[in-house]
Design a protein around this nucleic acid. Structure first.
Length: 844
RNA sequence: GGUUUAAUAGCUCAGUUGGUUCAGAGCACCUGCCUUACAAGCAGGGGGUCCAAGGUUCGAAUCCUUGUUAGACCA
């Protein structure tokens, strides 16, 4: 099941791919799924349980059969949802990480890296899920903040190094300054303690360094050591060191050569090494030891403490850091090119702020634990002889041959070889994705990979920047000596209203299919994009999608309008011709805007530009201007131009809203069989008539002023108002009189050379306008608003003049900027003059 | 604790190289409209100390320093 984060992610990919396709590029988008080993295995185990089957009772082969069944049933759902969203993938190329060819690629990779000495097997500290009984990657671990208890436990100091066999009863008696207190959230692990550690600069404990203390209840002696790792002001400043059950302690243990005492078994129960509470669950043991410590007087106090526990994403169990034998990939050498080529921008991250995160990760990279104690996944191609010798080979047969040749064990048969039961981390197949989908691992010279690799854009969430993106880059350089993609677009994380990440496990994501049902796929796509700039999280709300749906609705209504027009043979009016010119200029202006946005991966900004163009300029302005009178036909030239504009708008919007644009585009003209808007050419920009745009802006300002007066005076929109214009430049308005009349519902337009009595007046640019109204004019109120305007302009003039008088501004600022300032000043001065005249007249 | 990102309208957020009359959008709110494609709409309107204090600059929401607050990553 997909959630909103996937919806956003795939919408962005689809926008990019559709636009690229329309620009004539060989746009290839390979859809596919990974096998999500731990998640799927958990689901399959649950499914089997429902059928009364336990995993341990069936063979690996039987289990895998069930898993494949499960995948066949549910794996397609994701692809189906993507199709509903309108994702225009190359569906014939659909790949799956567990299909034979990709499986083989993973095995190949493992063997080759092993032979290069990059993969090794060793005992390390891993995240252990005691319920799932497997190691987990950090990615599969969820941190939860909880209120825990911090227990203060007293350890007695033994005064001297006790000789073997000496009675400990003696030294156990607490003396005044002969004990120390540690703070821990995990008292049940004291039986695994190897030392107590204090900060060497901590004056309180100087005298204890080098001595030994006794673990309470158990009475085992452990040394007191010093290391700057210990924070002096946390707890008591004394840290119990438990190398087997804490990563930091483990590293501290290695540094100070401390023994590792692992007291937990794979299920999270205490084993014999614990001596006490053997056979108890770790949490039961905690309760019991707290009770016993309290009774024996070792528990000094308990404190509430906000702490973080790591839990398994799948099973919910509290993770146990555990030492275990696992397979690892050495990361230090192999990851170098991946760091370098992101830092030098050969691979660009959008937004670039993630470069910092990326760098700090890659500079502190740990070896990658790639083995999982599961069945669903690529089984590790390592084979063991009875004496434990490891042979890594693609198949058992090859391993046998290797044993016979290299180890001269000619009597060996396949029965003597046991394959490692573990599988590989899912990311160990995902990291090959850009190569393996084109079969580039086994067949590095094939036509597809040579053509498509390296790819262009990767779109993904920042939460898997390291787990997936970085590793794909590593794999790219390792196998092809080249980057896997040029741009990485990192989407924001979609969160719910409470700011929680939307996820499968929380179940806080709305069902995408229901949303698509309710708001339409185009509505969901555009709605999500309206507020999703790269890299910024977005708080999901149905309101966002509503905006997208409303936009679709608006477009559809404009389409309906265009369909009910009847065409006449009469000549086009001058004003319509002008409006067409104006709007084409606006389109061209917007095209260059969105191309600029796209070049910087500002997908949302590009959509917003189009939204404004379509809603405000096309629907509210252009269509209103060319709209014929009631039940009147429209002239053919205007009609044709309007349809052409409409088609162009559909093409511009198509990457964002594939469904509605296709539907409208199909019906706006006669199309050939199989023709589709997604194969049309993305509109190219053209000349922008800046003067025309400016004069239309002035006209719209005038229209707004008249409407404002109408609203303020509570006049009906149906009441036509008489307008008088006092201007030196009459032809500025004569061409557009009919537009003004239509938009502002003016009755007559007169040109005057003097004041008009008993009229409301206002100034636009340098011209004065009058509207004669019934009844008295409130001169005081008029004066007040005019004065306010004037004050503002005078202030503006003053600061602009100051700016221009400043030699350093004129010298340092760009010349076109200075020119603009001069122009602004001139405009302001003209308007000031008109306003001053108006105020003078009002005062008379 | 280390690293890092952020703080702009009631809410969610844009604001690109410091320079447009730059302080914006959507939602919410207020007023008036069932106007001929659209009430999921139309026409208007109110609303801001751009977190705080310093600094750099001819010029700062934008750059620098410090502080406050919140988040993320790592440990």
């Amino acid at each position: 099941m997909l959630h909103m984060g996937h919806m956003l992610n795939n919408t962005i990919q689809d926008v990019l791919i559709r636009k690229a396709r329309m620009e004539g590029k060989e746009a290839c988008w390979v859809p596919g799924t990974d096998h999500a080993s731990i998640a799927t295995e958990a689901k399959v185990v649950a499914m089997l349980k429902e059928r009364g089957i336990e995993k341990k009772d069936i063979s690996r082969e039987e289990f895998l059969k069930y898993a494949h069944e499960w995948k066949d049933k549910y794996g397609g759902i994701i692809l189906d949802q993507l199709q509903k969203l309108g994702a225009s993938c190359d569906w014939d190329r659909t790949r799956f990480t567990m299909e034979p060819s990709l499986y083989e690629a993973v095995i190949d990779t493992f063997v080759r890296l092993y032979n290069k000495g990059q993969i090794y097997r060793g005992v390390r500290m891993v995240n252990w899920d005691p319920l799932g009984k497997t190691a987990l990657s950090d990615e599969e671990v969820i941190e939860k903040e909880i209120m825990a208890k911090l227990y203060y436990i007293q350890y007695a100091v033994s005064n001297q190094r006790s000789a073997v066999g000496e009675s400990i009863a003696e030294s156990q008696k607490p003396k005044a300054d002969s004990h120390l207190t540690i703070a821990t959230t995990r008292p049940e692990t004291i039986m695994a303690d190897s030392a107590i550690c204090v900060n060497p600069n901590d004056e309180r404990y100087q005298h204890l360094i080098g001595k030994t203390v006794l673990i309470p209840l158990l009475n085992r002696e452990i040394p007191v050591i010093a290391d700057e790792y210990v924070t002096m002001d946390f707890g008591t400043g004394c840290l119990k060191v438990t190398p087997a059950h804490d990563l930091n302690d483990y590293e501290l243990g290695i540094k100070h050569k401390l023994p590792v005492i692992d007291i937990l078994d794979d299920n999270g129960f205490l084993n014999e090494k614990a001596v006490l509470y053997v056979g108890q669950d770790r949490f039961a043991a905690r309760r019991n030891i707290v009770k016993d410590l309290e009774e024996s007087g070792h528990l000094v106090k308990m404190e509430e403490y906000k702490s973080i526990v790591k839990t398994s994403e799948r099973t919910g169990a509290v993770i146990e850091p555990k030492l275990s034998l696992q397979w690892f990939l050495k990361m230090d050498e192999i990851s170098k090119p991946a760091l370098e080529n992101v830092m030098n921008d050969n691979i660009k991250l959008y937004p670039s702020k993630f470069k910092n995160t990326y760098r700090s990760w890659m500079e502190n990279v740990h070896d990658w634990c790639i083995s999982r104690q599961l069945w669903w996944g690529q089984q590790i191609p390592a084979f063991y002889l009875q004496d434990g010798t490891v042979i890594v080979a693609k198949t058992k047969r090859e391993a046998l041959r290797k044993a016979q040749h290299d180890l001269l064990l000619f009597a060996l048969t396949e029965e003597d070889l046991t394959q490692d039961p573990d599988v590989l981390d899912t990311w160990f197949s995902s990291w090959l994705w850009p190569i393996s989908v084109f079969d580039g691992i086994q067949n590095p010279e094939n036509e597809d990979i040579s053509y498509y690799y390296p790819t262009n854009d990767l779109v993904t969430g920042p939460d898997i920047l390291f787990f997936w993106v970085a590793r794909m880059i590593i794999a790219g350089y390792e196998w092809r000596g080249e980057l896997p993609f040029k741009n990485v677009y990192l989407t924001g994380i979609v969160r719910d209203k409470q700011g929680r990440k939307m996820s499968k496990s929380l179940g806080n994501s709305p069902d995408p299919l229901e949303l698509i049902e309710k708001f339409g796929a185009d509505g969901v796509r555009s709605g999500l994009l309206f507020s999703a700039p790269a890299g910024n999280d977005l708080l999901y709300d149905d309101k966002l999608i509503e905006q997208g749906r409303n936009f679709c609705n608006k477009i559809w209504n404009a389409y309906r309008f265009s369909q009910q027009l009847t065409v006449s043979s009469e000549q086009s009016s001058a004003s319509n011709a002008l409006a067409i010119q104006w709007f084409n200029s606006r389109i061209n202006q917007t095209i260059s805007e969105i191309q600029d946005h796209f070049s910087k991966f500002r997908i949302s900004d590009a959509l917003l530009s189009l939204y404004n163009l379509v809603w405000d300029d096309f629907c509210s302005k252009y269509l209103e201007i060319i709209k014929p009178a009631y039940e009147q036909p429209i002239d053919k030239a205007t009609y044709d131009a309007t349809i052409e504009i409409f088609e162009k708008l559909m093409c511009l919007l198509h990457p964002y809203m594939p469904f509605i644009t296709e539907e409208i585009w199909q019906s706006l003209g006669t199309r050939k069989e199989g023709e589709s808007i997604c194969r049309t050419e993305f509109p190219k920009g053209g000349a922008v008539n800046a003067e025309l745009l400016a004069s239309f802006d002035a006209m719209f300002e005038l229209v707004s002023k008249i409407r404002e007066i109408r609203n303020a005076k509570q006049l009906s929109p149906k009441l036509a108002l008489p307008l008088s214009i006092k201007t030196d430049n009459r032809n500025r308005y004569e061409n557009i009189e009919s537009i003004i009349t239509k938009l502002a519902n003016t009755e007559t337009i007169n040109y005057v050379s003097d004041k008009v009595d008993n009229a409301l007046s206002f100034v636009v640019k340098s011209d004065e306008f009058f509207i004669i109204l019934e009844g008295e004019i409130d001169v005081e109120a008029e004066l007040e608003t005019a004065q306010k305007d004037l004050d503002y302009l005078l202030g503006f003039k003053k600061s602009t003049e100051a700016k221009l008088a400043n030699e350093r501004f004129v010298a340092n600022a760009k010349p076109e900027l200075v020119e603009k300032e001069r122009q602004k000043l001139a405009d302001a001065e003209a308007k000031i003059k008109a306003l001053e005249e108006m105020i003078l007249r009002l005062k008379k």
